[in-house]
Amino acid sequence: MRTNDVILRTTTTLIAFILLAFSVYLFLAGHNAPGGGFIGGLMTAAAIILMYMTYGIESIRKIIPVNFRSIVPVGLLIAVLSGAGSFLFGEPFLSQTFAHLHHVPIFGEMELATAMLFDLGVYVTVVGITLTIILTIANDQ
């Protein structure tokens, strides 16, 4: 039984996008500014939870047809594989490296770090975990 909450729904559409964008910013900026995979993941989860609170579980399932439980192992797998990748170069587990790229179209000067891949694993895992926990508890009778 849902009351007519037009204001909530309208603001949510705006705020959720801002939150998602902010979370992506936090994630990408993590290496050089406050942020990173953990906070970024939490922020993304917060955006999705806001959408859940406004639209309900069915809409969320329709918009994001992903089982949040199954992205937990995906994230862990990304983190482990990014660490195991260093074996290919004869380095110890979880060795990270980085490179500066010059004259890239559009971006120009940019830095690429393998730590970003690891952080991506953290990000995906945290999103999966947070959503699994909260949605499981919230949807329990």
Binding site: G37, L76, A79, L94, Q96, A115, I129
Partner: peptide
């Protein structure tokens, strides 16, 4: 580490193993 955020560099690069197992712990909790 190639990053200016020292905390993040420690988390993902210098001591990435800790982070790996912390997210594993969270996954198990979930």
């Amino acid at each position: 580490g190639g990053g200016h955020n020292v905390v993040n560099v420690i988390l993902v690069d210098m001591r990435g193993l800790d982070t790996l197992f912390e997210i594993t712990v969270l996954g198990i909790a979930a």
